[in-house]
Design a protein around this nucleic acid. Structure first.
Length: 304
DNA sequence: GGAGTTATTCAGGTGGCCTT
DNA sequence: AAGGCCACCTGAATAACTCC
């Protein structure tokens, strides 16, 4: 087992702050053009020259959808919704580093788009680890113990192999927390992600690289009491350890009929030990209701 | 499923305890 | 150790409602 890289692969967040009138106008003009020409229209923001293509249609209630190589930008005007939603591309996060990339997006938002500063409220965070040294097989699905419901096995479409179909990955969970274990070499090749192999140093080119990835969506992050992007980033190591330690584990088969009493597989112990971040805050997952009750109780203590 | 609620349900995880 | 049994309760999932 050899860890090639680890870190943050996706970061989505929303911002509750009013949009500058000039920025709105700029987007509006571009969208009008896009609608007319029926294809995305380029727009350049004046101050730092951030360039986007504005799509002719919005996205899920957001009036504007602007795309760039670095991140997707959604802008709307509802009062109930955050006016801004950002999806940072994994290539951007990897090429720049998370903190610098985030900083650049914040500068753009603050100086070009928003009329007031506001917290970046985290919506989704993907944490991953790429490794070599254990190639899962279809039968291994039985050795996983997972708190989430629903698990799927993915195999290669054009299966012409005599020895059965080639496993391309597993997914676990359907809700706000899910995990995927998949052949990253294959996926990167299929999707033409040439920058992905560049992240790997010292890998065996003759063997596939596998990725283990946890996707934390807002509802789960809130159970960890993580609201902002900064809070979530500071807790990445804890989230990794929760995912690999509690939520999903790989066991070594023994005589006992109950998987949950099987000992941990050494491969998984290695994955649990991966450092995805130097920081650690000690977050604990708990039901939202309980957190709220604790707050109430806390308020009581204060009052008393 | 975007965000933010609330309410409801129940599979199955957890852990103790007992045999063999 | 292996494994059967059992009670408890957590966490996962769903649905409903709202707004653009």
């Amino acid at each position: 087992m050899r860890v090639l890289t680890s870190g943050i692969d996706s970061l989505y967040f929303s911002v509750r702050a009013p949009v500058r009138a000039e920025a709105w106008e700029l987007l509006k003009r571009a969208k009008d053009r896009a609608e007319h020409e029926r294809e995305p229209a380029p727009v350049d923001f004046p101050l730092n020259g951030q360039a986007f293509l504005v799509k002719p249609h919005g996205w899920r209630g957001y009036t504007f959808w602007a795309t760039s190589p670095d991140f997707e930008l959604m802008v709307g005007k509802s009062e109930k919704f955050p006016p801004v939603y950002v999806q940072m591309h994994s290539a951007y996060l990897h090429s720049m580093g998370v903190e610098p990339a985030l900083h650049l997006v914040e500068v753009f938002l603050r100086h070009e788009l928003l009329a007031a500063p506001a917290d970046l409220v985290v919506s989704r965070l993907d944490i991953h680890c790429d490794y070599q040294g254990w190639d899962p097989e279809i039968e291994d699905i039985r050795r996983f113990v997972c708190r989430g419901r629903g698990r799927r096995v993915h195999v290669e479409r054009e299966e012409a192999f005599a020895h059965g179909r080639r496993l391309t990955g597993f997914t676990f969970g359907r809700g706000a927390l899910s995990a995927r274990l998949y052949d990253k070499t294959l996926q990167a090749a299929q999707r033409g992600l040439t920058w992905v192999p560049e992240l790997w140093t010292g890998q065996d080119p003759d063997r596939p690289v596998w990725r283990l990835e946890f996707a934390y969506e807002r509802n789960v992050l809130r159970e960890f009491n993580l609201r902002t992007v900064d809070e979530a980033l500071a807790a990445v190591q804890d989230l990794w350890e929760y995912g690999t330690g509690k939520w999903l584990t790989l066991r070594r088969r023994v005589r006992d009929a109950r998987e949950r009493r099987w000992p941990l597989d050494p491969v998984w112990e290695a994955l649990q030990a991966v450092r995805v971040s130097p920081e650690r805050t000690g977050v604990v997952r708990r039901r939202v209701r309980r957190v709220r009750e604790e707050r109430v109780r806390c308020a009581w203590c204060w009052a008393a």
